[in-house]
Design a protein around this nucleic acid. Structure first.
Lengths: 123, 123
DNA sequence: CCGCATCCCTACGGATACTG
DNA sequence: CAGTATCCGTAGGGATGCGG
């Protein structure tokens, strides 16, 4: 599939009317990914294939619990993470990426590699 | 280089004190990339190796001129795009990615591929 | 320990209008 | 055409505090 908005003028004309809803979905995902700490959250979880507990994620992402909870909630809504609560005392909740999210790993990894290189070279 | 925050506890302890500034730079870049339309802007410009004019970018990204101008300005500040103005009437300005930004292309492309697939399958 | 609800508050995005 | 300046509304992030 090709993305109308990013094509040159001629081809896009025809398709414009069709996949308006697809455009909406794409924007949806881009908005999701652009939320604060979202990339970090996904990256952190991708680093470690095992399910991860809330506080561990929070520590590594280094953000408020509010924000972390929001991001995890949004990811769950989009079917990118699964949440499993255990009836222990105190509570234990584990988050795991779905395989759809794991498919993002290579992209994320190379993106972070790029970020790290740039951060280095600007020291 | 390794990123302290995303490592497991033990190793990070030692390094924590050192590269605090690196952390700041990384966060800087992540914040930059997380701004609205930033990923789209980079992707659009990456699709086409040739320099691109303001209105063309604006059209493809589909955002207000304010936002597009802001994003391009920020990218220029970070050395990711170069701006070239020609003394024509009316004015002509071309934007091109620097090679640092072009290095991001593979990541962006696979990330967008993922986004498109997901947008499709959720129709 | 987990994480939602509330409040506050800023910063960001968009519309509009105006310059070279 | 390619912006900048201004204003404004709102989304969204953080702190705190409570409940499970």
């Amino acid at each position: 599939m090709l993305l109308v908005r990013y094509m040159s003028q001629e081809q896009s004309q025809r398709m414009q009317s069709m996949c308006e809803s697809a455009k909406a979905h794409v924007d949806d995902l881009l908005v999701l990914l652009s939320k604060s700490k979202m990339l970090s959250t996904l990256y952190v979880m991708n680093c470690d294939p095992d399910p991860m507990r809330f506080s561990e994620i929070k520590k590594r992402v280094d953000s408020s619990s509010t924000t972390v909870a929001r991001r995890l909630g949004e990811l769950e809504d989009h079917g990118l993470v699964t949440r499993t609560a255990y009836a222990t005392v105190p509570a234990t909740v584990e988050y795991a990426l779905t395989k759809d999210a794991i498919a993002l790993q290579p992209s994320l990894e190379s993106m972070f590699e790029w970020v790290l290189n740039r951060a280095d070279s600007s020291l």
